[in-house]
């Protein structure tokens, strides 16, 4: 932006102070992750006799392969798989059911449309943290404990996604639907051939946000999975701490923490534009 070369930006010493301030901020943000990475590359004795080193050691392969193959209660590779299934299930499921219901709300007039709209709206007020015990009972009655469907379905209804698609469909020119109708296209044909391709960017942006939401779930997997083989990685880390006075296997725990943050971080950085768009959209 050319207009930004004004007199309010910093130059000279001020510029360097600005950079310095930002670098301190970035360092503050990075430090815990740097330490975790260092801890995941050194041996247990180096950690239990503090202070631990601040520079990576040579145990990278040992620690990560130990975590991935055997872990503490279950192999971390298995927990990564569980997390991936849960995150994809939740994000794709939310997008699918929200697209369908938004299409129905915008393009049809059917009895109960308004009621339905308000029912979805109300779900905004019912985060899982608020209804944990009864929701757990429902899942248990369905035999959903320690299952992927138990990890996915109770978290799949999303008012945010439905509203987002509704808002987007409202901006789609009426002429398109008119033309489709004149051409004799069935509603589902219009949905699949025209509406879906037009929603591509919205879907992708929402996917980024929902994937992170699904991957980072903690309380729900904690309740619903008692079998270590079904643990997700984010909730499984806490389970790796020994009860009582034993010292935790920090190198393996820290390797697991790093592994737990890689997929969502890659998604955020790799799809930065979509991520920011999704973030802004989903808060509207």
């Amino acid at each position: 932006m050319a207009e930004r070369h004004g007199m309010v930006e910093r130059r000279g010493v001020g510029l360097w102070l600005t950079h310095l301030g930002l670098i301190v901020g970035v360092a503050f943000i990075f430090f815990p992750i740097w330490l975790a990475f260092v801890a995941s590359t050194v041996s247990q004795p180096e950690i239990v006799s503090p202070p631990m080193p601040l520079w990576p050691g040579d145990q990278f392969v040992e620690n990560y392969s130990k975590a991935l193959v055997s872990g503490v209660n279950a192999p971390v590779a298995r927990m990564l798989l569980n997390s991936a299934i849960m995150a994809f299930g939740i994000s794709l499921g939310k997008i699918a059911i929200s697209l369908l219901s938004a299409f129905a709300i915008v393009y049809f007039r059917f009895p109960g449309r308004r009621l339905f709209f308000w029912l979805i709206f109300l779900t905004l007020m019912l985060p899982v943290e608020v209804r944990i015990v009864p929701t757990y009972e429902v899942a248990a009655n369905f035999g959903m404990l320690n299952s992927y469907s138990g990890l996915i379905f109770p978290l799949i209804a999303s008012a945010t996604a439905t509203f987002l698609f509704r808002q987007f469909f409202m901006t789609v020119p009426d002429e398109l639907a008119e033309a489709a109708r004149v051409d004799g296209a069935r509603p589902m044909q219009f949905f699949i051939d025209i509406l879906l391709p037009m929603s591509r960017t919205n879907i992708a942006a929402l996917f980024v946000i929902l994937f992170i939401y699904g991957w980072n779930q903690y309380l729900w997997p904690l309740l619903i999975t008692t079998d270590p083989e079904m643990n997700t990685i984010v909730m499984g880390i806490k389970q790796m701490f020994p009860s009582g006075d034993d010292i935790a296997d920090w190198p393996v725990i820290m390797a697991t923490s790093i592994l737990a943050m890689i997929p969502p971080v890659v998604v955020v950085i790799g799809m930065q534009k979509l991520f920011i768009r999704g973030l802004v959209d989903s808060e509207k």
């Binding site: 029912l119 779900t123 929701t135 209804a157 109708r181």
Partner: peptide, 29 residues
């Protein structure tokens, strides 16, 4: 919207997945 499709069962079918999940995992609990 000015332009709408006709039908009764199709829209109900479309909202059914979300309605079911919301009823079972949100409103009932």
């Amino acid at each position: 919207k000015r332009v709408r499709f006709k039908g009764l069962w199709l829209p109900l079918l479309l909202v059914m997945p979300q309605l079911l999940i919301t009823a079972v995992f949100f409103f009932y609990p």
